[in-house]
Nucleic acid binder design. Structure first.
Lengths: 194, 194
DNA sequence: AATAGACTAACGACCGTTAGTTAGTCATTT
DNA sequence: AAATGACTAACTAACGGTCGTTAGTCTATT
């Protein structure tokens, strides 16, 4: 792997663990086996490295959603929804990208708040569009109970994804998969038509 | 308010917004209207201030749970559960304490990870004890569906609290209250006996 | 009532360290 | 010959923290 990609990979894991302010260029350089100033041969600044990683993470999250929806396009709504939820939840297990993404969403560096919010807003609207279309398909298939509004569904969905992403910090993968079953059983029973 | 309490209040809001590494003692001092060395008349170190705030936040979260359970002691299980969930979710709106608490739970400063984990573990076990007793009461009252295990209930409960706490970063209070209704309607339908 | 000592909480000056960044150099590759 | 990517050296700014001093306040003694 070339130096640039190595710097990105190392930056991702360090930013994920220690945050933007808690990570120094010296740490990144040492882990990459080069000296600190050499980083500037590949990135204009610490902020530029961080923002590139942020855009990557956002793009990858969208790609994950698209992949899930496409792969399960022919499956019943229940399976599509379950697969989508599970994929989103396990995004956090992509080595350090999930933690990075979560941290970036919740606590973007105050110093880069303008650029960060632009990335976040764009990502959120891209996800919203896909989610709304997906709900419509479930509704047309009669899979959702009629008294459940779009708003309620979206609220519950986001809430569960956020909650599962949070729990990846607290539990091992196996434990999280057990917990996912609990959450899914409650969620599906809550939204399905009788 | 005396200087010590003022420093705590200001530290809380700055740590919440910028994190531990992103907040400097100079910022805290300036906001409190004193100079940096004067902070050391009240706290041994930056870490000591932060850890005191962490313990306070943890204690306050437990107190909130106890208050909710006590206040609704005579109410039906559904109302008790709803009240508890709502209280936990709106904890984040306690001026900066909710954000501080969430940040502390998810991304404690790596430099203080040992002390932080001790506080977190203690808090989690205190909450678990209360939650398990609460579930038992709901089960005895026949409010929960029999096929729902304790594990599943706890997983879903934590997931929703974490999700709602996360969403407090993204939405205004009014919007969050709308979303809470959606989450609650799905959750309750998912756990209740028929 | 006046004073002496102890304590508190503020301060300016400063310390050692480290942060991100720049400039300039040099060997290797294209 | 040009570009790349590593290096050393060094910069400024800021960090957390220390020290000695001082102004004010409470208490106890005279």
């Amino acid at each position: 792997m070339n130096t640039r990609d190595r710097l990105k990979q190392i930056g991702l894991s360090l930013f994920a663990r220690h945050g933007y302010e808690g990570t120094t260029l010296a740490q990144i350089a040492t882990a990459a086996g080069i000296k600190k100033p050499s980083i500037y041969n590949h990135f204009d600044s610490k902020a530029a490295l961080f923002l590139e990683l942020s855009r990557d993470a956002d793009d990858d999250m969208i790609a994950l959603i698209d992949a899930s929806l496409a792969r399960m396009a022919q499956a019943p709504f229940e399976q599509r929804l379950r697969h989508l939820l599970q994929q989103c939840a396990t995004f956090a297990y992509r080595e350090h990208q999930g933690v990075f993404y979560k941290r970036f969403l919740l606590f973007p560096p105050q110093e880069l708040v303008t650029e960060a919010e632009a990335i976040i807003d764009q990502g959120e609207s891209r996800i919203d569009r896909r989610l709304i279309a997906f709900i419509q398909s479930g509704r047309r298939a009669g899979a959702l109970r009629a008294t459940l509004t779009d708003d309620h569904f979206i609220a519950a969905f986001y809430c569960i994804v956020d909650g599962l992403l949070s729990e990846t910090f607290m539990y091992e993968r196996q434990e999280l998969e057990r917990r996912f079953e609990g959450v899914w059983s409650v969620f599906w029973r809550g939204v399905t038509a009788d």
